[in-house]
Computed example of a mutant assay.
Amino acid sequence: MKILFLDIDGVLNSTFWNSDNEREISEGKFIDSEKVLLLSKIIHETDAKIVLHSGWRFWFDDNMKPLRDEAIYFNEILKAHNLFIYDKTPDLTTEEIRKSKKFSLVKAREILLWLNKYDSVEEYLVLDDLDLNDKEIEVHQIKTDANVGLTKENVLEAIKLLNLKTLEI
């Protein structure tokens, strides 16, 4: 099984997109559909499963049912591209981390904790705009630029990394 750990802000939206789409944001639509199209290319070329490791995961219950309008819209735009969220990472944040928004302090540990639960993961990739401060995760991460979000170059790199084992056969 291949896993794509997905962050949302700075990946499926961006600083530039946000400034041009204030009306959509006011309607709870925080996702750039062009970025979802890029994400779909990764998923369909690699058969990876999406595990949400964004703060957005708190907008879904344990069965990945949306709890907020933003999450409903996110699910709808994913479904339009035949994409689905497989799971979400556990929450290791503290009150202090949530207040300071320093999620990068625990994101790598959350990912590793999730990976330790599943023996069937053959390859994984992390899409995030933050530095996750972990050498093991770093080699599996494509760090996006929060100003532009996911790019075609990121997509090509992601497909290559996720299909690495397949190519070696």
Score class of each variant (00 low, 15 high):
S54W: 01
V121Y: 12
E22L: 15
L132R: 02
D134N: 13
L150R: 02
I42W: 02
A80R: 09
L78M: 08
I25V: 12
V126A: 12
L4H: 12
K101N: 06
I50S: 04
L130F: 10
T89Y: 01
T94E: 11
L150N: 01
R109N: 14
H53V: 08
D62W: 08
K2C: 06
S26Y: 08
D145H: 03
K2S: 08
M64L: 10
E24S: 10
E110Y: 07
L78I: 03
V11E: 00
E110W: 05
W114Q: 02
V36T: 09
N154R: 01
L156Y: 15
M64C: 03
N154F: 00
N63M: 11
K35S: 15
K143S: 05
V148K: 00
L127C: 11
L92W: 06
L78F: 06
D129L: 00
P90Y: 08
T144K: 04
K88T: 05
T166W: 13
V106P: 03
W17Y: 10
F58Q: 14
R23F: 14
V121F: 12
W59F: 13
S26A: 11
D61A: 13
A146W: 05
L156C: 12
I137N: 00
L164V: 07
L4A: 15
Y86S: 04
L38C: 04
D9T: 00
T144F: 06
F74L: 15
N82P: 02
L162G: 00
L156M: 14
E34F: 07
I85T: 02
L161R: 06
V11P: 00
L132F: 01
K101A: 08
K2F: 08
W17L: 04
D47F: 11
H81A: 07
L113M: 07
F74W: 10
S54G: 04
P90E: 10
F74I: 09
K41T: 14
E95I: 15
E138H: 15
L125T: 06
L6Q: 04
K49R: 11
N133V: 07
E157W: 04
V51F: 02
N116W: 13
A158Q: 04
W56Y: 12
L164T: 08
H44Y: 11
L39M: 12
E110P: 06
H81P: 01
G55Y: 10
L125W: 10
S19M: 09
D32A: 11
L125S: 08
S40F: 05
L83D: 04
V51K: 01
L92V: 09
E70P: 05
L115C: 03
K135P: 01
